[in-house]
């Protein structure tokens, strides 16, 4: 179990991580979701002692990472797949780690097989690796010490669809065996596919955290109409917060009944009215993304008004 309690990290005036607390439980995959620059990587570096927090603490099964005698035998870590020596071969990278943590060299070959790096590929220098191959190597490195806990920063970045599918299976299996998995991603869909629990972070702060089902359960109503202008006016008059999703569809922060009433009052013909699936988390995520969006990035889909 990974426990993060009140962790804050500032760089000058910029607060990268702001009073972050959450728990990643045993036997579960916890998705650490947030837009780029939200503080995911900094939080993860703090968990493994590479960055010192200004306040707060992180423990793994009750112990500080830095107090674990041989941490790699307990916690598998992949923070940045590109942080490998370009001049070493894939096999040599794993060999150095295996020697440090004291696992037999045969384990290196097992891991190479597990992540699907062929013998020829393992003999190539990392400089010639694609991001996907580096990612596989990083996963092999994280699993090398047969850990009970995994901390993975954007592990599916650069993987092809087959690789992503494989990764999901691997992490699912690991958690089902009783392992703890914390993985970060900036893609909601990615986290949704594999996570049991989701922690949503934006601008260094936790925006939402909990079991996936409860977070995804309809916080709003999905509504489609043939009269979008009329419906928009009706929703405004009823003071309901909403966001357009496509041309004729809206996600409204209200019960379907209230949306139906607003539609009737405005005289808008509806073609679809249901509790939205996942829209709650999705909207929240979109809002966070929009807040930190770069110029030129479209923000359509973000809540326009009255977001509580």
């Amino acid at each position: 179990m990974i426990k993060i309690q009140g962790v804050t990290k500032r760089y000058g005036d910029f607060t990268a991580v702001d009073d972050v607390s959450f728990t990643a439980g045993k036997g579960r995959v916890t998705g650490f979701l947030g837009p780029n620059g939200a503080g995911k990587s900094t939080s993860m570096r703090i968990m493994v002692g590479l960055t010192r927090p200004d306040s707060g603490r992180c423990t793994i099964d009750g112990q500080l990472y830095a107090d674990l005698p041989n941490p790699a035998r307990k916690v598998g870590v992949l923070l940045d797949a590109s942080a490998q020596h370009n001049g070493r071969t894939g096999r040599e990278v794993l060999r150095v780690s295996a020697d440090t943590m004291g696992v037999p060299a045969a384990r290196v070959d097992e891991m190479l097989t597990m992540v699907g790096l062929s013998d020829t590929e393992a003999k190539r220098r990392v400089r010639n690796y694609s991001l996907g191959m580096r990612q596989r190597l990083g996963i092999a490195n994280a699993f090398l010490g047969d850990p009970e806990v995994l901390i993975l920063d954007e592990p599916v970045n650069g993987l092809d669809p087959a690789g992503i599918h494989w990764m999901r299976g691997l992490l699912r299996h690991f958690a089902d065996q009783g392992g703890t998995v914390l993985l970060s991603s900036h893609l909601l869909h990615e986290v949704e596919q594999v996570a049991d629990d989701i922690v949503l972070i934006g601008n260094g702060r936790i925006a939402a955290a909990g079991a996936k089902e409860s977070l995804l359960r309809g916080r709003g109503t999905h509504v489609s109409t043939v009269d979008p202008q009329l419906l928009e006016r009706g929703l405004r008059e009823s003071e309901l917060a909403f966001a357009p999703v496509g041309e004729n569809t809206f996600v409204v922060e209200a019960e379907p009944v209230a949306v139906g009433r607003a539609a009737v009052a405005a005289g808008a013909v509806l073609v679809e009215l249901r509790e939205s699936e996942g829209a709650g988390l999705e909207d929240l995520f979109f809002q966070l993304t929009a807040d930190s969006a770069r110029p030129g990035v479209t923000t359509s889909g973000s809540i326009k008004e009255g977001q509580a």
Binding site: H85, S97, T100
Partner: peptide, 11 residues
């Protein structure tokens, strides 16, 4: 940047 691995293996 191998320090990221080195110093997680031995903090």
């Amino acid at each position: 940047r191998t320090g990221m691995v080195t110093f997680t293996l031995e903090p």
